[in-house]
Design a protein around this nucleic acid. Structure first.
Lengths: 196, 196
DNA sequence: AATAAAACATACTAAGTAGTATGTTTTTGA
DNA sequence: TCAAAAACATACTACTTAGTATGTTTTATT
């Protein structure tokens, strides 16, 4: 990797961490410069302004990370009852990047930016739509295999599961403890089982 | 009501609306002064600082509003399958204050402030806990009446329902349309029915 | 090696921010 | 009614913010 590219990536990665922890609005350019050891000249050489950097974080870091953690596990073709539960368990209990006290970076950005930063909202909605498609496909596949009842509506289930996820992140932040994740996961298992 | 009390209340109400729409951090004192037509001297006579005002909003406006909209409907003693669905339908589809594009004020504040403003987090967690208690009581009552299966775990269900609510607010913001609320509500009905 | 462009560095600006200092006006209680 | 306290008004400060102007250094190309 070229040195300039490394500088750019370093800015994105450190900013992502700062924004995840502190929020977008409260993470100042000067904060970013201090932690990256990059100067203002370098920053504005690589990014036109703060929002352009924010969008780059979503598109270049959040999106691939999201695809790997949220969507890849759904492509196995297995029983949705198990696959969906396992996905959620991995995301909530095993993921190394996300911390219960800081919630989900995608959810944080959405709540903070929508509806004022349209570009952010569109990019984040994109993520959400992709996840939804993956879940729907997983359920459709389960119906074909007979793992899921024929009368189950895939889109309804997908929305229901996704809303549960965004919401449990909120509760985790409030209580600052993963114990609420475990309670949620138990009921998620019961719910998924009810779709057989 | 005394005039001074009216001034204080006006500040709280207008600030609440501004913060609900724009967020806490991005609503400046000067914004508040401009929309309330109150001067800085008056503001700082009534509130020590911005955070004290924020807490007053939570405790004096959000809390009672939350109790009326989220908790009172649960105290009827009716069938939880219907009572819980009706509560959610009212909150999502009928409430006059909350708009789909701005989400839920309690969720917005939580995502924005936790874990950095401990007082806010505690006050908001308080709200959440009260709601949880109400839902649990509603389900326990339903179990006693035979409306809900004996093996249903009230706390698990409460957490599951609450997470669904916080989450669907997030999705509403992303899509800026109540249609996602309707999809969610259909599946909520199926889920609640599965508890019989 | 020479040179042009890329990559970075430093000092600054203009606009906003929460909060304060110091007043004036209004209300209240004896 | 009149003084004291409550309620408000205005002008200011010290600090932070995103972004710019203007440089210097590094890298790539010939």
């Amino acid at each position: 990797m070229k040195k300039a590219e490394a500088t750019r990536l370093s800015i994105l990665q450190k900013s992502f961490e700062l924004i995840y922890v502190k929020g977008y609005q409260t993470t100042s350019i000067d904060d970013i410069l201090a932690t990256t050891q990059v100067t203002k000249g370098a920053f504005y050489y690589h990014f036109k302004n703060k929002d352009e950097m924010g969008l780059a974080i979503i598109n270049e870091l959040l999106k691939p990370a999201f695809a790997a953690t949220f969507m890849r596990p759904l492509q196995s073709g297995g029983n949705p009852v198990k696959v969906l539960y396992d996905m959620m368990y991995e995301i909530l209990m095993k993921d190394k990047f996300m911390k219960v006290e800081y919630g989900c970076p995608a959810a944080n950005l959405t709540l903070e930016m929508a509806p004022w930063h349209k570009d952010f909202t569109i990019a984040l909605n994109n993520l959400s739509e992709e996840w939804k498609k993956s879940i729907i496909q997983c359920i459709k596949n389960g119906k074909k295999n007979g793992d899921i009842r024929a009368d189950v509506k895939p889109e309804q289930v997908a929305v229901f599961i996704m809303s549960g996820y965004w919401g449990i992140r909120n509760m985790g932040k409030l209580e600052n403890s993963k114990s609420v994740y475990l309670i949620y996961l138990k009921q998620l298992k019961d719910y998924l089982t009810s779709l057989r």
